[in-house]
Amino acid sequence: MAELFTLPVLLGIAFSGIRLATPYLYAALGETFAQRSGVLNLGVDGIMLMGAFSAFFVALNTGSLWLGLAAAAVVGLLMGLLMALVSITFKAEQGISGIGLYMFGLGLSSLLFRTTVGTVKTISGFQPVKLPLLGDLPILGDIFFRHSLLVYGAFLAVPLAWFILERTTWGLKIRAVGQQPAAADSLGVNVTAVRYACTGLGGVLAGIAGASLSIALTNLFQENLTSGQGFIAVALVYFGGWRPLGVLGGALLFSFVNAFQLWMQVLVPEMEADIAVMLPYLLTIAALAVAVNRTRQPAALAKPFERGEA
């Protein structure tokens, strides 16, 4: 057990943990916007899969990773708007429409993969970029500042999301729409428009989350590449109490424990692997249960808005 806490191991955990956290961060930050505006989107995993496929397909055929990333964002936007149409305009039960969106995204991404790419191929994805100065730091430079641009992007998105939500008029509108849609409406805020925008933005970020898997972290696509990471991302929004910093904490906790358990399997071979694999899930529940986290969810979450009632 002691060898788990040596410097090389801790640095290895940090390196893997940062990479693992990347897709969760994008997807969970996007879902934070959707939920703060009052829309529960359980279909994040389906959007991620469509984003991952689109990015891979475009990058494979054009040779341009940036075009691939753009494709993932556009497809993510379309999927998000589909969710918005069903959930906001048609006021569907959101817990169920999200499951429908997930099934649709899982099926369609697999189908498109089968008919266009056919078999597993790898591409050369976003390469690690050494940040000037920071990348030259001893030890820390290797761990924190030699990742691909999409990894940096995920961590930069955290303060950006915080700033938008807490320090801009648009953020104020989002929060108002999620808490008191009727009051926001009476003050002239277009509830429907804000929710569409947030669900669409959530879709864009989920699409990029998928792209980070297929063209930066694993550099391939296969059926069900995300294997349920979108659901974990939704859970992390609750973990983070609908705050970008809290989401960052949740994503890092989950991913670092996941990286930790891999090292534990290597260094403590007598430990059952199946138990090690459970650790991130167990600890995430436990951490939330013991943390003093009583953030109230947005009051209007998952409740469709109809002008003139309430």
Partner: peptide
Amino acid sequence: ATWTGSFSDVALMTEAANT
């Protein structure tokens, strides 16, 4: 040896290899 418990989680398997 490391086992990831999932047949499709490529991201975790990549990190297992990195480990």
